[in-house]
Each structure stands twice: as structure tokens, then as C-alpha cells.
Nucleic acid binder design. Structure first.
Lengths: 257, 257
DNA sequence: GCGACAAGTG
DNA sequence: CACTTGTCGC
């Protein structure tokens, strides 16, 4: 079973990219972030034609998440319980016996911004909910754009990034707390393999991609039952080099189930 | 000698269309309208590589005209004398012994708009200047987007258009006054030929192109010496069906000189 | 509809 | 740099 995540930075713009990628990479589940469209505009027909169910929760301009799946999703939830939030950042569904939670975590803007406090509060609420979900679902995957690079080696330039937004101690602690609920960052199981890339996001600005000035901020976190069945986890870096790319690339994890 | 006109509705967007069209239609002179770019951004190098000189006068966002030519242009003028106007709507040059005046005439917006008065004043100033130029230049072509359909048959639906903007009596009188200086509307010499189309512009809105709901508002007007040498004049309607087309197509007149 | 801009996010 | 929503012109 393959489970993937991709922050598409507008599904309106990236719909054809996603369809083409799915054609070549017929994963079982694809979590999308930053769809940036309201539910009435979600292109479910196009995905259905490609053989995918879709569930989604979106808003105008900002945020928006979706889950595409080959098998029918059940027990769909569209928000974090226990957090009043206009932002559409969470979607969960059970697919083929696996609980999949797709998230678009807040960016945080800057350490001294109110948005940073919101980010930490949001992560706390997520951790609480994920712990409850993990208690119920043996097979659970939490995946999406976390807007946190967990370690110095997940940045292209630690001297530049350590302590800054996306790499600050409180954000890493918030991510760590998610892992503490028993989840494994699947990436780290395979990062030593040959020819592996290190990043999942490159800023559009300052030639980030050309300079390989990236970060690893998109993750697939798996419960113990799934982590032990994980056989690979990697970024499809080639997508960043296409025409009109998202600033993020797909991250795919494979499980032997 | 072939002389053409094309309102490109942003040369930034249409640069590749123009280069591709010139490759297949190596006309001697091409007058462009609505380039919508300032002179520092005019892509003269790209046109030079394609074998064309270019002279141009543009502004941000609106208007902007240019002349591309295989032979070097001389005696270039960049405005209508006798009319104070920020709008970049006129460019003239002598190419291979022919005086070419490229114009982007005001649209006029609506009959009761101040822009309509501006349009009529502008045409009056143009007529005065063209008469003076015609007195000096035996071989003269006045071409561009005139924003006037001269006759009912130059509209797809006279019942809808007669009397309205682009087809009102005062606008037609203003255009007539240009012809009265001794110019010939080259189109009318050949419009009965087989397979001719009737229009040069189709509104982007309401499926104008799909419905062939067009107007003939782009013209090539020639002095007597050239009119008698004119061998064809037609619209390259196919350009309207390409990807990301301008709402206008090229109009090409051929002269046996 | 499809250009142009401006302002806001990331 | 590349998205968004707006307004404007045609």
C-alpha cells in the first residue's frame, strides 16, 4: 500500500500535474494540501475518472485539504475536534483498514507573530486528537505539510535556518510531541539509501530550486503497526522541475500490508 | 510588398504568437497595437533575431503601438501632432519608400461617455494629420485597430450592432473622413473572393469566437498609388483559434510594387 | 474573457 | 516567485 502527500499550492493550477503524477504513480492514498478552493469547485469528477474517490474540505484563497483514494473512504472527519478554527487544515478517513489523517499545519509567519502562537496551539490540539485516534486505530498514518523541519540535516543550510521559523525549538518540540504518541517519521528509515534527496520544499524565491536550497517539511508519520511494515519513503523531487510547479513535491511511503 | 496589422492585446503574452506568425508570414511591415509595455521592455532583440527592425512607443498597462519591418524604418514619428495625449496610439515610419502609419484608435466605451468625445476628437486630429502626410507621401498606408466597423455587413449581427459603439453614425463619419482624404479600404477590393472571412475581432466574452460573433474593425487604408497596386487584403482568422489568442487577428494587404 | 495592476500570504 | 482576490479597460 502506498500513501502519499503533496502540498499543491492551488489545485486549480495544479490539477493536471496531480492527474499526470497519479497516472505514473497510482498510489492508494494521496493527501493534498493548499487546494485553495471551495468544496463546490473541487474537481472530484476528474479524479473519479482517474479512478480515485475524493473527500475534501476547502475555503477560498487559503488552506484546503483533500484525500484521494483508490478504495472508498469511510468515517470521514473534516476538522480537528476541540479547536475552533475557520481554517480548513485537517481531513481524516479510513481507507482499506488504515486511518489516514491529512494535515496542512500552520506556517507560523515568524517567531514573534501571533500566527506563531496559533501554530503551537494548533499542534497541541492535533497531538491530543492524534493520540486519541491512535488509541483506536492500530494502523494509522498522519501525513501532510507540517511546516517544521525536524532536524538540522533537514535544511540545506543549518547556519541559516537553525532557530528560525520552521526550524525553531518550540516548533520541533511540537512535532516531537506528535512522534511521542508513538508515531515514526518514515523518511528516516530509508534516508541512507542510494540517490536519496533530502528536501520536500524549495522556496519559489531566490532560485531556491536551482540552488537546492530546500527543507524537509512534508512528512509521513506512521503508527507502530505501519512503521514496521514500511518499505520505503521518498520525495518525488522531479516534480519541482516541471513547468509551473508547486513549491512542494510529493512524498510517498510504501507499506507491505 | 506585404503590410499587416495586428492588435496583440499585450505583447508580453503574445510575443511567441507574433514570432511564429512572422515565421510563416514574413510580411514586410507589421503594425502592432495594444503592446501594453513600456519601451524599456519592448522585445526588440527577439524581433531582430527574426529579421525585423522595430520601432515602438508604449506605456504601462494600456495602448502601445509598434512597427516591425524587414527594411530599416526612417523618419519615425511617435505621436499625432496637434493633440496633447498621454496615450501611445500612433507610430509612423517610412519603409522601402512607403509611409506607414500604425494606429490604435480609441474604443470610445459608450456613446454617452466622455471617452466617446475623445474618440471623435482623436479621429479628427488623425484625419488632419493624415491629409498632410498624404500630400507629402504618394505611397501611404494607414493601418491598425480603428475600433469602427464601417458598414452593417462588417458586423455579425447588424440588428444588434447598428447605432451602438463601434458602429454608430458619428464613428462611421469619422472613419469616412479618413477615406475622404483619398484612402481606400483595401479589404473591400477583395471581399468577394472565395472563402473570405468577414471579421477581424471577436469578443472574448460570450463565446464570441465559437459563435463567429465578430466585427471588422482592423483596417488597411491605402493612398491611390498603393490602392491601385493592391492585390489582396484578408484576415488570418486561424490565429483566433490558437491557444491564448488575442481577440484580434492579423490583417494582411499585399501590394505589387 | 482575458489582459493589466495592486495588495496580501507564504 | 507564485499563488490569491479585487478593480479596471475593452
Amino acid at each position: 500500500m502506498q500513501i502519499a502527500t503533496w502540498n499543491v499550492n492551488s489545485l486549480n493550477v495544479r490539477q493536471e500535474h496531480v492527474l499526470a503524477w497519479l497516472e505514473n504513480n497510482p498510489v492508494d492514498v494521496l493527501a493534498l494540501q493548499e487546494t485553495k478552493l471551495t468544496d463546490d469547485r473541487f474537481p472530484s469528477a476528474a479524479f473519479a475518472e482517474a479512478g480515485y474517490y475524493s473527500v475534501f474540505t476547502g475555503q477560498k484563497t487559503y488552506n484546503g485539504v483533500a484525500l484521494l483514494s483508490r478504495d472508498a473512504p469511510t468515517d470521514v472527519e473534516f476538522a480537528l475536534p476541540g479547536l475552533v478554527d475557520e481554517h480548513k487544515r485537517v481531513i481524516a478517513a479510513t481507507v482499506a483498514g488504515v486511518r489516514v489523517i491529512g494535515v496542512y499545519c500552520p506556517n507560523g509567519a515568524a517567531l514573534d507573530s501571533p500566527k506563531f502562537d496559533y501554530k503551537l496551539d494548533w499542534f497541541a490540539a492535533l497531538a491530543e486528537w492524534v493520540a486519541a485516534e491512535a488509541a483506536v486505530h492500530d494502523r494509522l498514518v498522519l501525513t501532510g505539510d507540517f511546516n517544521v523541519a525536524p532536524r538540522p540535516e533537514d535544511t540545506h543550510d543549518p547556519d541559516k535556518w537553525e532557530g528560525r521559523i520552521l526550524c525553531s525549538p518550540p516548533e520541533r518540540a511540537a512535532l516531537e510531541k506528535l512522534l511521542d504518541t508513538g508515531l515514526t517519521d518514515c523518511w528516516r528509515l530509508f534516508e541512507e539509501r542510494e540517490g536519496r534527496h533530502r528536501f520536500t520544499w524549495w522556496d519559489y524565491r531566490n532560485g531556491g530550486w536551482a540552488r537546492n536550497a530546500g527543507l524537509r517539511i512534508d512528512h509521513v508519520l506512521a503508527s507502530p503497526a505501519l512503521a514496521s511494515a514500511c518499505r520505503d519513503c521518498r520525495a518525488h523531487v522531479g516534480e519541482r522541475g516541471r513547468k509551473r510547479p508547486s513549491d512542494h513535491v510529493p512524498v510517498v511511503a510504501e507499506f507491505e500490508l
